[in-house]
């Protein structure tokens, strides 16, 4: 089952699907791919759990800190970037899963 969860991360609101840029981030093999994302304000991040186990997306960077909660295999979480800056992503469950997002104005 493929569920789309619309959430918010550090200035991100419910996505309408018509934003300038969409960045899809996979989780297969317990790794975010790509691990570095360059985006602009208004772009969306789509976290796709294409792995066989549950993952999570957490950013603990001050000013952007958000926990998107557990994401089961086959599900997607879409967020819209509303604020420029840089923040790190990590999986709460798997310490080695890391990524970095840079958001330009």
């Amino acid at each position: 089952m493929r569920a789309a969860i619309l959430l918010s991360i550090a200035g991100i609101v419910l996505a309408s699907g018509s934003h300038a840029g969409e960045h899809r981030i996979g989780m297969a093999g317990m790794a975010y791919a790509p691990a570095t994302i360059e985006a602009k304000v208004g772009d969306t991040l789509v976290f796709v759990n294409d792995d066989t186990q549950a993952h999570n997306v957490l950013t603990a960077t001050v000013g952007f800190s958000t926990d998107l909660g557990k994401q089961d295999p086959g599900s997607e979480t879409t967020v819209t970037l509303r604020k420029s800056g840089a923040f790190d992503l990590e999986c709460v469950i798997h310490e080695e899963m890391r990524a970095r997002v840079v958001v330009r104005p």
Partner: peptide
């Protein structure tokens, strides 16, 4: 030192 949004639970930590 920080606040963490938890939108799925409608909570801020």
């Amino acid at each position: 030192y920080n606040t963490v949004d938890r939108p799925d639970r409608k909570t801020i930590r």
